[in-house]
Design a binder for these strands. Structure first.
Lengths: 189, 189
DNA sequence: CTAAAGTGTCAAATAATTGGACACAAATGT
DNA sequence: ACATTTGTGTCCAATTATTTGACACTTTAG
């Protein structure tokens, strides 16, 4: 099954060619840019399913700052499009920063074709997950309730709803997404 | 301002000592474990604000598999407690996997004390953020609507609400809480 | 041991959600 | 091109949820 459109941004033509070949049978459409400057325009035109973004565009500058900046710009404007970063300079700090800035994944050159495809598919799948509103609500309610140590008044306050409504909500979903054995944190006594 | 309890798990006593000194004035309470085996018990007893977890516990094994496994175990059972990983073997793949498995951050030994403190505070802050229910709802609604290209029927369907309700919701928040820059001209249309 | 804060539960007023309906615009198939 | 399907905006009345306020009671802190 093909997975829509991918936008690849890299200043190295050889890389673009290699990626095109590698991804030809995975995507319906492959759009490439050799510079990120017009990336927002291209995104608006192509509406890509996923973006593969190189981190270094100035020769001799390998800090990845430029890619990081573009990551932020794109992610801010299109938070729903997964962005996979790719770089020749494996740097843990950079990778961590990228993921915390919204990157879906981070791969290093030279890459393994199968791994790249897997990573991209994975990013698309994760971005495509849509959960129903009430499930989102229930999860959040329990999270906040947890953080308030079960204090429903405070939790309701933080959630912006009335105490009684919180009651109804927790009553409506008694045993939600708790995996594991039966003891919750705080059940000491 | 002190930031509650931190649980530090590392098999190297010297590291534990060093961390204790480093973090003494940042946390009210520092709990240490030299092995992750009883970590769930300790968490239940201490209810830590944040966890600092080493990735390697078997000498000679530096794949980080063990730390990764414990990260998963802890994160699954306590998704609200931020877990910062620490490792001597800077490995991009490992770091990426860790973050995707729910780690709040990833630091490498030897660490910088100030940076470690900053990272921990950051993790705590991020985990402590509580957003009101209606804001969460609005953001999710807009995200799903986006993914459906504005098709309200489909979006309502995916959200598990009726089409009219979706109408009301979008009508109620025309320019919602999107963090943000003013207007980046997409010049798409 | 008080006072303050939280709990569980109720009821009545208010708001939101639903399912159905309708005329019309847009996309789809043949 | 035409007919069919699908989606849009917008109503309505019936049903649910939510809120506000209240009450007796337990827990927590000073």
């Amino acid at each position: 099954m093909k997975h829509g459109t991918i936008l690849v941004i890299d200043d190295n033509p050889a890389i673009l060619t290699a990626v095109k070949i590698c991804l030809a049978c995975t995507f319906e459409r492959i759009v490439t840019l050799d510079s990120p400057e017009k990336v927002l325009v291209t995104i608006a035109q192509e509406n890509p399913t996923v973006i593969l973004l190189d981190m270094n565009f100035s020769l001799g500058v390998n800090s990845g700052q430029e890619g990081m900046m573009w990551l932020s710009v794109i992610h801010r404007k299109h938070p729903d499009i997964p962005i996979v970063l790719i770089t020749a300079y494996a740097d843990v700090k950079l990778a961590v920063r990228a993921l915390k800035n919204g990157a879906a994944d981070f791969v290093t050159k030279p890459w393994d074709n199968d791994e790249l495809i897997r990573v991209l598919k994975d990013a698309i799948d994760k971005a495509g997950e849509i959960i129903p509103l009430d499930q989102l609500e229930t999860e959040h309610v329990r999270k906040v309730l947890n953080k308030c140590d079960g204090n429903m008044k405070k939790a309701a306050d933080l959630l912006g709803i009335s105490r009684q409504t919180l009651y109804n909500k927790v009553k409506a979903s008694p045993l939600p997404p708790l995996r594991g054995e039966g003891k919750l944190r705080g059940e000491g006594e």
